[in-house]
């Protein structure tokens, strides 16, 4: 932490897109910098236009833009590409895209015939626009790192989540639960570090049109269950999982996710749910009128990653430790 005071600020530039100004402000404040002056407008025909209000020649540029918004996700992506391109043509020395929630990350494989791998396409688009480096958080599948030809630092919210669980939950009586089979690994890793047991829920699809049944593997009777996942979108899975857990005698159910996307009818579902708390990080802006919501601020981790990257220090410390 000593070094952060001596940090050379003469060539770091923080640019923020319109997707998550609050997070960008937090990062800037942590770094002791101000956000560079840029203007992002839309023409009346909805084309995006970018102007960069100060010189970034030979500077180390960081562009903060996350994947969010039911209506605007493509606009924000386009905005990011245009800002990158504008910086490239303005002779920035290095351009790093800080994308806390990588858009289209769930389309990462050909799981059905003729399904597109859109995450790959997004990676190629970023490179084509002129991006030199990417910082992101909790990629849906870490293989997405391999879609890029440029370096990608995939940070983890896990240390912050760990801290949250240790300090703000009933850890003595807790059990970790993965709401689907794919997340078992994530939960097992957390369980190891917290010395907790874990259980697993599996959505069984017996037949195509039959209502899916949830199978619980492991026992949760009388426990305080922590559902862990990388993202909460429509929350259908989480709500159903919490019902299943309560049916099996759980005392209470908390959900902890990294990316709280909460699209569609998520708000309604959460209001009607029996979840006692839903916790997410601020990788995406959350606009949710639900009193059980709690947030973990991960801007220190992103800020520290930017600082270390700029100063040419190792980032791996952040994989195991939460920045303050």
């Amino acid at each position: 932490m000593e070094t952060s005071k001596r940090m050379s600020t003469n060539s770091i530039k923080l640019l923020a897109g319109n997707s998550h100004p609050e997070l960008a402000q937090n990062i800037a404040r942590t770094l002791g910098l101000r956000l560079s002056n840029i203007g992002v407008y839309q023409y009346s025909n909805q084309e995006t236009s970018v102007t960069i209000g100060e010189s970034i020649r030979d500077e180390d540029v960081y562009i903060i833009q996350t994947g969010t918004g039911e209506q605007e996700i493509n606009d924000f992506l386009m905005e990011l590409l245009i800002i990158i391109h504008a910086c490239r043509t303005a002779s920035a020395r290095r351009i790093t895209a800080v994308i806390p929630n990588f858009p289209y990350a769930r389309q990462d494989k050909k799981d059905k015939s003729r399904a597109p791998i859109t995450a790959k396409l997004v990676a190629q688009m970023l490179e084509t626009a002129g991006c030199d480096h990417v910082i992101t958080m909790d990629l849906h599948a870490s293989q997405i790192q391999g879609f890029f030809h440029i370096p990608v630092d995939n940070l983890y919210a896990e240390p912050s989540v760990l801290k949250y669980i240790q300090h703000k939950t009933d850890i003595g009586n807790a059990i970790l639960v993965s709401p689907d089979a794919g997340g078992a690994k994530r939960v097992a890793s957390l369980a190891d570090k917290l010395d907790l047991n874990f259980a697993l829920i599996h959505k069984e699809r017996q037949k195509a049109n039959e209502v899916s049944r949830m199978v619980l593997v492991g026992d949760v009777t009388g426990k305080s269950c922590l559902l862990i996942d990388d993202m909460a979108d429509t929350c259908g899975t989480l709500v159903k999982a919490s019902d299943t857990l309560l049916e099996h005698g759980a005392k209470e159910v908390l959900a902890i996710v990294t990316h709280g996307i909460f699209s569609g009818s998520a708000e309604q579902k959460l209001k009607n749910s029996k979840l006692s708390r839903i916790v997410c990080t601020n990788t995406v802006p959350v606009d949710l009128d639900v009193n059980i919501l709690d947030q973990i601020d991960i801007s220190p981790t992103l800020a520290e990653a930017i600082r270390r990257l700029h100063n040419g220090e190792s980032v791996s410390y952040l994989f195991t430790h939460a920045a303050i």
């Binding site: 494989k109 790959k120 391999g146």
Partner: peptide, 15 residues
């Protein structure tokens, strides 16, 4: 080993 590996290729892959 991981189906995401299909995204490593710029050409079609059948897994």
């Amino acid at each position: 080993h991981a189906s995401q590996m299909q995204g490593f290729f710029t050409k079609p892959v059948d897994n």
